[in-house]
Design a protein around this nucleic acid. Structure first.
Lengths: 151, 151
DNA sequence: GCTTGACCTAGAGTATGCTCTAGCTTGTTC
DNA sequence: GAACAAGCTAGAGCATACTCTAGGTCAAGC
């Protein structure tokens, strides 16, 4: 019977352990807490922060959300919902689903942006091969590619 | 004879025109220039910057490169190469190709990061449907998904 | 009981990428 | 030739996200 969070101790980690295992600095972890991004952190007699394995997983989630462009402000909102308990499940679900959509949209935007870079590389290849500036501009190539994909 | 820029005149645009047509502020365009990101800008008698249609396309490229995560520093390097003329074509080609690779790698990383978010949404759905916390953690689900995609 | 290392708080400093202000000049229009 | 829009330079200010410093406390080993 090893209950994970509430009070017990499946593992009692200090900030240095968490830093090492999450690949962050202790500074950063304390800063995350001041920003409201660390739920369920308790203190021991000496006022030291005590963490559990839960926080390793939590920081992994935070990292993935940050990586995919979620701001600290939004992470704070999400963390606040988590702190409210299961009553906030629909809101948490909605927040993450909205983020998924944003990330997919961003990937689409990036892919679109790459068409011009692709065209530019092609343009440079032709220029170098032919010895003079090609007549078809990269912008025109990019437009062509978008209007007839894979042609 | 309305000569625009010391040599020829396909179009003579002032900073306000460029700002309007590129969707940026005049401040930003001047700042881009101080950062070395605006090649071939000349001045008229009254010291005003004069642009051509070329710069509209240029700013479009800058925007796409920025959007896909290229830093101002790297844009500056690229711009410096463009200013050097055709001798720098191989270097420009290499710089853009390297950027393409980075963007593709980033998209892969993002897609990977999304697996946990997907799993989390699924986890919340089950939790809400079942009324209690599911036993399989989001982290475990994400691992499962990665080890056997589309199963 | 003293040293050492890890931890504490508060707050300053840094990097990036803009964004705007102040004060002045120039070009155009009436 | 006066008014006014648009441009100019230099530099300050701002948002985001850390990152680190200073000065002190606490716990464990010797």
């Amino acid at each position: 019977m090893m209950d994970a969070r509430a009070t017990q101790a499946p593992s009692a980690l200090h900030i240095g352990d968490i830093a090492r295992r999450s690949g962050r600095s202790v500074h950063t972890i304390r800063w995350y807490e001041t920003q409201g991004l660390m739920p369920g952190v308790v203190r021991d007699r000496g006022r030291r922060r005590v963490y559990s394995d839960y926080h390793i997983g939590w920081l992994d989630l935070m990292e993935r959300l940050r990586l995919t462009g979620m701001s600290i402000r939004q992470l704070r909102e999400y963390t606040a919902l988590v702190k409210q308990g299961s009553a906030s499940l629909p809101k948490r679900r909605a927040l993450l689903a909205a983020h998924q959509l944003r990330v997919h949209a961003m990937i689409a935007k990036w892919t679109e942006a790459l068409t011009l870079v692709d065209a530019k590389v092609e343009f440079y290849d032709e220029w170098m091969a032919g010895g003079r500036r090609p007549t078809v501009s990269p912008q025109q190539r990019a437009r062509d590619k978008r209007s007839m994909p894979k042609a």
